[in-house]
Design a protein around this nucleic acid. Structure first.
Lengths: 177, 177
DNA sequence: ATTACTGTACCGTCTGGACGGTAAAGTCAA
DNA sequence: TTGACTTTACCGTCCAGACGGTACAGTAAT
């Protein structure tokens, strides 16, 4: 039982890692199994096929985010934008190989990202419902999305001081301290 | 000669198209050739291997952008941020299957996006050199990057009115009319 | 004659996935 | 508590098909 859970984790992690390093198109089950220290049979026991693996990658990403967001807000949606900003920045900070699982999923089948779309829409609606400056909320959302994308693409170009500046500016816009 | 040029175009277009529709991981040379109405031999005549095709996809994307940006600015860098905003929005407007070639390249080999990184950095520096509000320029850049990413990922969620609102806001920040 | 292909045949490798096996842990009646 | 059985969590092998790439003969326009 304990072994099962950790195998799944290791496989998921290995998949994200490999996707980022060698390009999502070359992500093979063999490679994932080897990297995770599991046999191919073991991999396919945990995930019946490649699509299932990719789906799990997306779900894990979303689950992580959702959980931490729920923790940060503790049921209350007050100041959601600020919480979201903090969370997203923190996630960006610790080098994100986790989110490159999304890349693998996208490469495998674009429709696998549908849950991400839904999650984002819901989040945006919750933030808008908070009653703040809608324009600022949209800017916040897109700036963060832009940063995430650059990380994912490996085309991040902002210097630390630029990053600080833009995040400060956005925080200001949504009315954080 | 005329045939050569149009074949290349058709192939590039077909590759982008297929990458977006069936997932970049399943982009095969056979499929691209078929979709472009070219034989596989013909494809390999134009692009000696898959990596070359992907590289050309990236180059074409950048070339397009560069050309149009140069046209819009006519050598002058004054008001570059505004030009960039207009251009990026226009590019977003006409449904972008072209940029999903980037996706295929990324999936094939992440390092193929290095030229994109360089292009972005240069562009950002040029905009900063214009002397405007640096924070606003960074926000502009990232918001646009965010929108592009959402389009690429198929996770675009903004309603037209939200899009208008956020673009207006950004335009205001960089001091456009 | 050259250019820009087409079409076909083929090769070696990789890949997803099916399959049969198995060691260990858990369940349960006697 | 022991033996019989089931379930869980894998391992290792195998294979059909897909893939990237090569080779080469042919063709139609310039």
């Amino acid at each position: 039982m304990a072994r099962g859970a950790s195998s799944r984790e290791k496989i998921l992690e290995a998949a994200s890692d490999l996707a980022f390093r060698q390009g999502a198109a070359h992500l093979s089950l063999d490679a994932v199994a080897a990297c995770a220290g599991v046999s191919k049979g073991g991999l396919l026991y945990n995930f019946p096929n490649k699509a299932a693996l990719m789906k799990a990658l997306v779900e894990k990403y979303l689950e992580d985010f959702r959980t931490r967001l729920e923790e940060a807000t503790e049921g209350e949606d007050s100041n959601l934008p600020v919480r979201y900003l903090d969370l997203a920045v923190a996630k960006l900070e610790r080098e994100t190989p986790s989110s490159s699982g999304l890349l693998a999923a996208l490469a495998e089948d674009p429709s696998l990202l549908a849950p991400v779309k839904e999650f984002n829409r819901t989040l945006l609606d919750r933030m808008k419902a908070g009653g703040g400056d809608v324009g600022a909320i949209l800017v916040l959302f897109l700036v963060l999305e832009g940063m995430r994308a650059q990380n994912l693409f490996g085309t991040a170009i902002l210097e630390p001081e630029e990053r600080r500046l833009v995040l400060e500016r956005v925080a200001e816009m949504i009315g954080a301290a």
